[in-house]
Design a protein around this nucleic acid. Structure first.
Lengths: 237, 237, 237, 237
DNA sequence: AATGAATGAGAGTTCATTCAT
DNA sequence: CATGAATGAACTCTCATTCAT
């Protein structure tokens, strides 16, 4: 809302007159306002007019840029989550180093760029309201869940191919990695509602510990035959 | 909806005339319908009329038994969650055995009687919508969160007093125990929305593993000085 | 509700067993409760169930005796107002004395038996809500307004015929007599709502003064030719 | 509805585009429609949608301008009654002449600008329904009754201070002046319901006669000691 | 005769979306 | 482009009346 973020929609704007500048910035301001409010109140409980008001425009203008509240939400998802995968895919394509390092790096990056930001509220939102808005859920799955799983799948496969990881069933192992991430996001956005005091959970420590556990479960253990399933009992798996 | 449950409100009904029979059964039927729908759609998205319809009565009848949608929700919370604590408190008062056993028993019971049932959806609901309905959140905290924390606090204190557990800060350690529970419930009710296939997470195994980890963190370790804080890095803590 | 009033509906009941006694008394109790509530809240705002509750019976019973709320109201009107005219007509038929005395007597009786009791609230109610319930208004006119006007008309005519009163237009003069009565009732039931303190208006003094003024306007004045209209300027006329 | 009245809300509208024009006019149109219907049916019996329909807009539009039916009513009261006092206070502040003249003028003005208009129906409405809507009654008292009484109190005090009026108890004498006004309004709005024909009561004559009577009661009578109370027997006092 | 559970039309209010300006 | 007035379907809750018991 205030920080000088760069929006997808603002990509191609060179230097212009102030007035026009604002015009070009509109979608970004709307997306930012929408993100704030969706995360704060959920999808259904967020009123279009309030989004517009927070972005400093009128109700009509919102619908000028986004044909419906659902489309607005989709745009927020693209802006804050879906669009990240392109860069990540490149990054990991070019990654040099062990897959274990890659996985640690992946989770740290994910924490820094998503989970610790407001964007993680979108995931909580989908978990909360997805069932009531099947089209949004479908969109979210296609734009965020599948790319995320794909990325993770490729990482795991890289590890297996290189002999670093045991030849587990990749499709299931994904969840072992994702579960702690999800938990962190839910904790961040939900638990404060039900627990008065500040819950004591240091996200970075939690994440590093969980990553360690998961990695231990994934790594090929010399002299052991691993099944195609994730280790039963591995936390979050 | 599934099992022949007994509702609080259905105490003393022998055989009676049909009309009266129905009257005795109404609150229970409405509570069951409400539980189903609240869990399925959330509080805001559940329409009173739909609750009534699912219970096989008309709109007006619902308001004959519950003065408002909010009161209906509260009744559902009492019926399915809050009312359980009385029995549990007694049970644990009378428990004989080590506190470690007690804790394991506690978590198993909680899984069987709450988390594995629809009732756990109420917790997910509160996490999702609590912020939008402060009065409900307040009620839920008083009726469910506080009693739950109290119970857990007493268990931990028992362990510390008996020398079984290290002299940790009880108020923080609570979360180490509760976090995996919460996670299981959220997983159960939310993740299926975002992930197409059935995620592979065997709740009972997960729970037993988590309990083991937590217990290891709690137990007094001979020859070691524990601080008043839970072990950093203990999962969920 | 408490006083040992006799209801029309209780007319024909000799001495019976208590149980049956109550049964016979039901309509009366309902009428009394209805009178209270209609006067207190008005017709529309009075809930049938509350009438039943105040009479100590169930909602269903009310509709057993009175087929609808409107019929209940009509019965209340008959019980408390319409039924009075029969006696009054007789009384005034048999009255011996000057018509001026008769008029004074009439107004005192009306005050004592109607205006100073709850029954006057029915008049205020009709003035307030009559337009919203045309059938009730029609009924009230037929049962109360017309008999009242008839009575008054006969009194005036008696005075004119005997030469006591000037040969005024009776149909208009009626209002000169009725206006102060109406005002008293409205004052009694309405003004307390808008004026915090107790308004200082002694009804009996007011009535006697007004009666005096009206009478002075009505009496034949020796040597003067009165038109067929009431004196312009006569209060309330 | 009839005259080309100017509404408070319609202050500064020159010629504008149609849409905007309408917007400026809306509150006034709604207030006028609301006044009509409130006076015709009372507060409770007036449906929001009907107000909107009579103003030529849809249900939703009404709530665009007034957040609730109660607020709409308050606005109607302000528009038609409360807002008048400011001007009157000034007018009477600047009045030159005897207090008796002032009082006559006051009552004539009140008749012309209030009692003879639809606005007087609001007073009748409050008398009828005030008890069922305490918040409205409170508002009406603060906005209309108290300013009215204050104004009247100041007039009476002026008369007493100047020696014109006897040193009566002002707080009680107020009612002697107000009672005939109230009566006229009630007569106007209520009596036609119960009496078929047009009752013959010429308001202006009635008012002038009543004012005369009241004034005679108020004027200081040379050589007589008046008590602090209004004359018992003075009409309406 | 008496009950009170059940009904359902209807009231006030909200809000995503449209469209004239 | 931008506005914001206007819409109307949808939602919660009320209450006179019915009718099985």
């Amino acid at each position: 809302m205030s920080a000088p973020r760069r929006f997808l929609a603002d990509k191609l704007c060179p230097v212009r007159a102030k007035r026009e500048r604002r015009k070009e910035a509109r979608p970004g301001e709307l997306l930012e306002a929408a993100l704030d409010l969706f995360v704060e109140k959920g999808f259904a409980a967020t009123r279009s007019e309030e989004v517009a008001a927070r972005a400093g425009v009128s109700k009509g203008t919102l619908f000028l840029y986004f044909p419906s509240k659902e489309e607005l939400f989709k745009a927020v998802v693209v802006e804050n989550l879906a669009s990240l995968f392109a860069g990540w895919n490149q990054e990991f394509e070019a990654f040099e180093g062990s897959t274990a390092e890659m996985l640690r790096y992946c989770m740290r990056v994910w924490w820094e760029r998503v989970a610790s930001t407001k964007a993680s509220g979108l995931t909580k939102l989908m978990l909360s309201e997805g069932r009531n808005f099947p089209e949004l859920a479908e969109f979210y799955r296609k734009q965020v869940v599948h790319p995320g799983h794909d990325l993770m799948r490729r990482i795991l496969r890289r590890g297996i191919d290189s002999g670093e990881f045991a030849p587990i069933d990749v499709d299931h192992a994904i969840y072992a990695v994702i579960a702690p991430m999800l938990f962190l996001m839910l904790w961040k956005h939900s638990v404060n509602v039900c627990i008065d005091g500040q819950a004591e959970l240091d996200p970075e420590t939690y994440l590093s510990v969980q990553t360690g556990i998961v990695l231990r479960g994934l790594l090929a253990q010399p002299g052991e035959q691993t099944s195609g399933k994730p280790q039963r009992g591995a936390p979050g798996a």
